[in-house]
Design a protein around this nucleic acid. Structure first.
Lengths: 328, 328
DNA sequence: TTGAAAGCGCTAACAG
DNA sequence: CTGTTAGCGCTTTCAA
């Protein structure tokens, strides 16, 4: 039932090549025949088969996006920004979720490449040399957001380490004597790419070293919520929890409250990311604002530069900002 | 640089047809030649070109998804569920955002169809006979979530009207004498598909009619936040705001608070959708729980039935539930 | 069990 | 300005 250029050619009593010229605004065609072709194309309800076009052009005008899970506010905002910028540039998105499964991620990337996406935007759970080599072996370029892979894989992010340092400085300036870094992803450091969290941890250590803060505790396990109340009670020092992600901070506040502990009265809490859930939170939360929309837009631009064969930045760092809040 | 079946055939000194039989597990092939072909395919790093396969098979194994905006919690959860179910069934997703623009939505759907998606899942902003005819004219089947189009366009949702009635019953049972329905989308009723909100409004009217509640006010404009405090002050009756969406409810609570009005002390508030932002909200909010994941899964199943030529339900309603909360 | 040929719908190159 | 031819990589007949 599909109307093809062949049909148009037959109806107009003309060749397929000419139909192509008319339909795609190419030069060297008589205005009258062009008008005729366009008219009959419209009348016949012609629609181009983009699949066939892609096969011959070697470009699909679509980008593959692989992220952890879109229910996560951070990724939802990121993907939205990516989609809008891609659409603006005429590209469509193939979005797929790796659900924190390294093998699934590799499989999904392979499938996207087999579908001939022109480029990939990843927030990878994989890491290391093998993954780097895998990405390098692909016919389509990749850009990575947040989770660094290797110097030769284009990266877009913020200086997580510096941000963590600034965050600790804010906490210290509020008179806290003890800061506990809460970072559940550390439990999966061996299997997963948690570059950004590792950077935050490094920043935490560095900042703590600069001050005579009494402890440099780190809670890096999945049962972190069970550990917070006791950690709080074991010392009389004025304590703050610096959480490597707003979700952990929100969960922490809820848990402390369930134990009869109020924020910031009994403990300070600071998050990271500034996800938009915080907008409706009272008391407001101190956090680090990540320019997530800008990251998405920049990732698309970098990727399209590569797709179009231009030079592209291998490493772009955007500005973060420290947000004070009533939770400290 | 791409390795094709032709290359494998040449290297093995065999025909392309046989390579195809080996690669795709088809019968009538000698086990030895099959083994040889698979081995050399692996060695040469062969990867199938899914574009070419789709062109000849007439199927792309991908579904088009068009929603308003994925930053909205509701759609993020929905799209996540859709992606996982689609992936489980071997399909990929082409996701795109219509940004509440009817024309853009139509254009995007057209583009997805030109890319030969096997089916479409829509939360449409368009409505009416013209849009119905447009969808019917497409070579790919559609399933619609939430915003009903016409009896012959498969629909997945909940009974919004009944849910609104039950919600009002809950509010009335708490002793509220005056209920104001807050529904900003009504301002766009002429241009956009706001079926679900209209259904909620109808339910509101019906439930109000059953009780001798003193007023049946509706705030249906984009400046709804400016109207709430005065609406509250103009009557001494115990008042509740029934908001046609949790976001409106959250914004309402924030605004009232800014005016020195506390919930539920000065006014009750009820939302709709049970978006997961509510999880961290205190006091907790009364709302209507929409089974958003199940909606997504069911939409995929319905669509794939159609794609595979089976009969499919034209109208599926899932169970909602009323959630009580401290905001009433 | 294998090979040869045709075709999916489109674009590109060259000849007229 | 227009037509012809070849080909993108794959699958599918039909014949051997």
């Amino acid at each position: 039932v599909q109307v093809t250029t062949k049909d148009i050619a037959r109806v107009c009593g003309i060749s397929r090549g000419t139909v192509d010229r008319a339909l795609n605004g190419k030069p060297r065609i008589d205005p009258d025949t062009k008008a005729l072709i366009l008219k009959t194309a419209r009348e016949m309800g012609y629609r181009p088969d983009l699949l066939a076009r892609s096969l011959v052009k070697g470009r699909t005008m679509s980008l593959g996006v692989v992220v952890y899970d879109i229910r996560n506010r951070y990724f939802a905002q990121l993907v939205s920004a990516i989609e809008m910028e891609a659409k603006r540039r005429g590209y469509f998105l193939n979005i797929t979720l790796q659900e924190n499964d390294p093998e699934m991620e590799s499989r999904l990337i392979g499938n996207l490449v087999d579908r001939r996406v022109d480029g990939l935007i990843l927030c990878p759970v994989n890491k290391g040399e093998a993954f780097r080599a895998f990405l390098k072996s692909l016919p389509a370029p990749s850009v990575v957001i947040g989770n660094y892979i290797a110097p030769d894989i284009p990266f877009v992010g913020i200086d997580e380490r510096a941000a963590a340092i600034d965050a600790v400085e804010l906490i210290v300036s509020k008179g806290y004597e003890r800061i506990i870094f809460v970072c559940p992803p550390l439990a999966n450091a061996s299997k997963e790419n948690i570059y950004s969290h590792e950077q935050r941890l490094a920043g935490f250590y560095e900042a703590i070293g600069r001050h005579s803060v009494s402890s440099r505790d780190v809670v890096g396990s999945d049962d972190y919520l069970d550990r917070l109340p006791s950690a709080l009670r074991e010392s009389g020092a004025k304590t703050a929890f610096f959480c490597s992600g707003d979700i952990y901070a929100l969960n922490a506040i809820r848990r402390l409250r369930a134990e009869g502990l109020e924020v910031p009265r009994d403990a300070g809490v600071m998050g990271f990311d500034n996800i938009d859930t915080l907008e409706f939170l009272l008391p407001s939360m101190a956090t680090v604002d990540t320019p997530v929309c800008e990251l998405g837009v920049l990732a698309v631009r970098t990727l399209l530069d590569l797709v179009e064969g231009k030079e592209a930045e291998l490493r772009s760092l955007l500005d973060y900002s420290i947000i004070d809040g009533a939770s400290l």
